[in-house]
Simulated assay, not measured.
Amino acid sequence: MIHRLASPALCTFLALLLQATHPVFAEDKKPDAPTAEKAKAPPPDWGAIFKMHWQNRVRAFKEQNLVFQNVVLLGDSITEGFDVAKHFPGRRVLNRGIGADVIGNNMAPDDPRGVLQRLDNSVFDCAATDVFILIGINDLNSGKSVDSMETGYRTLLQRLREHSPELRVHVQSVLPTRGNHDKQNTPVREFNARLKRLAAEYKCTFVDLHSLMADGEGRLKAEFTNDGLHLTETAYALWRGKILETMSWN
C-alpha cells in the first residue's frame, strides 16, 4: 500500500534509500561477480542521508513560505481606501483598514472600535509575516491626548510582540493634515516623535510617511488630498513606493 499512500517527496526519498542499499535495482541489471573491493564497501551513512533529506525539506519549506507570505495593512479609513489589488498586483497584501477606527484604549463601554479589539481577525489569523500600522488621527479628532495615544500604541506593540515574536512590525508615522483638520498637525508631529521612539524600543521598522507627504509648512500637500485628511491616488502611489522599498520588492 506504500505506493498508494506515500507522497511524491517520500517516494523519491525511499528510492534514494533503495539505491543506497541495493544499487543493482537502480541500474536494472544483474549484479556483477563479487569482488574484494565491493565486499569491503562501507555501509550507507544513514546519518548523512537523513541530514541531507532534512536540509532539502527545510529549504523547500522556506521557499514555500516566501510564496505564501501575507502582508497586512492595519489602520483606519486612510488604509481602507488603499486599493491593494491595483497597487500590489501579484502580491499577497491584505487590507485591514476600517473607517473611523482608533487605537482602542480607554474606550467607552458602548464603543467597540479599536485595532486593539480586532488583532485576531486583522493580524494573528492572517498568516502574516509583516504588518504596516497607520493609526491615530481619529484618536486626535476624538479628543484623545498624545499621552493616552502613546499608552495605547505601546499596548498594541506589546501584544504583537508577545503573540507573534517573528512578525515584522512596521510603524508608520501619522500623516499630516490640511484645511479643516490643520489644527491636528502640531499633535501629529509630537505623536510621530513618540512613535519613532516606540518603534526603536520594540525593534520595529519606523516608516516616515509624514515627511514624504508634507509640504514646506508641514501640512499635507494639496495634491495629495481633497478634504484635508484622506488621500488621492497620487498619494497612494507614493505610499505604495515606500512599502515596496520597505519590503525590498523593488
Rank of each mutant, 00 (worst) to 15 (best):
V188E: 15
N192S: 10
S173E: 06
G143S: 05
E166R: 13
K196V: 05
F124D: 12
F124S: 12
E190I: 07
G136A: 06
R197K: 14
G216T: 01
Q172L: 04
L160A: 05
K203G: 13
L157V: 06
F206E: 02
Q172E: 08
P165E: 01
F124M: 06
Q172D: 08
E150R: 05
E162Q: 13
Q158P: 06
F224C: 14
T225Y: 01
L175H: 03
N121E: 10
R161Q: 10
H210N: 09
F124W: 08
T177K: 13
T151W: 05
I133R: 08
D147G: 09
L140D: 11
E150M: 09
S145Y: 00
G143F: 04
T205P: 09
P176L: 01
A200E: 13
D125N: 14
N226M: 05
L119Y: 02
H170T: 01
E166N: 12
D139R: 07
L140W: 04
L167Y: 10
R178H: 05
Y153N: 11
R197P: 11
E190H: 06
R194H: 03
F224A: 10
V146M: 06
T186H: 12
L160E: 08
F124A: 13
T177A: 15
T151K: 15
E190V: 06
Q172W: 00
A127K: 11
S148K: 11
L160H: 09
V174C: 08
V174W: 00
D208I: 00
M213G: 07
T225S: 13
S148Q: 14
L195H: 03
R189E: 05
H170M: 03
L175V: 07
D125A: 15
N226Y: 06
L198Y: 01
M213Y: 02
L134G: 10
N180M: 10
L209E: 08
S122C: 11
N180Y: 09
A214Y: 00
N180E: 12
A193S: 14
C204Q: 07
I133Q: 12
R197A: 15
G218E: 05
